[in-house]
C-alpha cells in the first residue's frame, strides 16, 4: 500500500531529472515542473471523482460520466485539428466515440465480463476511459494522415475523376493509407506485448497483488478491445469526413487543402 508520504518521496525522481536537464542545458525544466504539478493535481481529483461515481447506484451517473468524457475528448480532438478545420468535426468525433463505446464497451460488459449490474462502475468507467483515449489518438493520427494523403494525391485523384471514378473510389487510397498508418503502432504493440515490457494494466494489477495469470487475461482482452475500437472509430470518422473533401458535383474541394491551388 502506497501512502501520500511515499508519493512525495517519489518526487526525488523528478528532482534527479531536473538536475540532469539543467546539467545538460536542455531546458524544459519549467514544463517538467508544470507537468509534475498537473499530473499530481489532475490524478488526485480523478481519484475523488471516481470514488464519488463508484459509490453511485444508478446507471444515469455512469452514462452521464461517459458522455462527459466523450465531450471532453471531442473538444480536445477538435482543437488539435485547427490546422485543417473540418465542418462539424466536433459532432463527428462525438458520434464516433459514443458509437464505438456502445459497440465495444457493450460487448465487453455484457458478453465478456458479464458484470452485474450492466453499468458496474469498477468495470465500466476505466474501460470506457481506455476506449475513448485510444480511439481519439487513433482518430487524430488517421485524420492528419488522411488530409496529408489527399493533398499529396491531388494529381492521382484528378486522373481518377477524369476517368469517371466516383468520389468513394477516388478517396479510397487516402482512406487506406490513413487507417494503415493509424493501426501500425497498435499492431506493433500487439506483436511486441509481453516480450519486453509488462503493459500498463497488468503492471497495475500485479502491483495490487493480482495473480499474473489472471492479469494476462484482462490484458489480452484490452489488446483486442484496443484494435477494434481504433478501427471502428477511424472508419466511422473517415466515412463522415471524406465526402467533405469533394463538392456535390464530384470535384475536389480545395478549401481543406493548406495550399489552395485551384
Amino acid at each position: 500500500m502506497i501512502s501520500w508520504t511515499d508519493v512525495f518521496v517519489s518526487l526525488v525522481l523528478i528532482g534527479i531529472t531536473i538536475v540532469l536537464l539543467k546539467w545538460w542545458k536542455i531546458g524544459l525544466t519549467k514544463s517538467l515542473m508544470w507537468g509534475t504539478v498537473r499530473s499530481f493535481v489532475q490524478l488526485t481529483i480523478m481519484g475523488y471523482v471516481l470514488t464519488f461515481f463508484f459509490q453511485q447506484h444508478h446507471w444515469t451517473f455512469m452514462v452521464g460520466l461517459l458522455l462527459l468524457m466523450s465531450l471532453i475528448a471531442s473538444y480536445e480532438g477538435n482543437r488539435r485539428s485547427k490546422d485543417h478545420p473540418i465542418p462539424h468535426y466536433f459532432l463527428i468525433l462525438f458520434g464516433a466515440l459514443v458509437f464505438t463505446q456502445i459497440v465495444v464497451l457493450g460487448a465487453i460488459l455484457q458478453f465478456i465480463l458479464n458484470v452485474e449490474p450492466w453499468y458496474y462502475p469498477y468495470a465500466m468507467i476505466p474501460i470506457a476511459g481506455m476506449i475513448i483515449g485510444n480511439a481519439l489518438n487513433s482518430i487524430t493520427l488517421t485524420v492528419n494522415r488522411f488530409v496529408a494523403e489527399m493533398e499529396h494525391r491531388e494529381a492521382e485523384m484528378e486522373m481518377m475523376l477524369s476517368l469517371g471514378a466516383p468520389i468513394r473510389a477516388v478517396a479510397q487510397n487516402s482512406i487506406r493509407a490513413a487507417i494503415k498508418a493509424a493501426l501500425l503502432p497498435v499492431l506493433n504493440s500487439m506483436m511486441m506485448v509481453g516480450l519486453v515490457q509488462i503493459p500498463g494494466v497488468m503492471t497495475g494489477q500485479i502491483l495490487a497483488g493480482i495473480d499474473p495469470l489472471i492479469a494476462v487475461r484482462y490484458q489480452i482482452m484490452i489488446m483486442y478491445m484496443w484494435v477494434t475500437s481504433a478501427v471502428i472509430a477511424d472508419i466511422l470518422v473517415l466515412t463522415f469526413i471524406y465526402k467533405q473533401f469533394f463538392t456535390s458535383s464530384d470535384q475536389i474541394n480545395y478549401t481543406f487543402f493548406r495550399r489552395n491551388s485551384k
Partner: peptide, 23 residues
C-alpha cells in the same frame, strides 16, 4: 454540361494530364 452526371460527362470528355500519372 451540368445536366450530365459528372462521371458520365468525364468519360465522354476525357482529360489527359500534363504529367502522366501512373498508379
Amino acid at each position: 454540361i451540368e445536366s450530365y452526371p459528372p462521371s458520365k460527362l468525364r468519360k465522354k470528355i476525357c482529360l489527359i494530364q500534363q504529367k502522366p500519372l501512373m498508379i
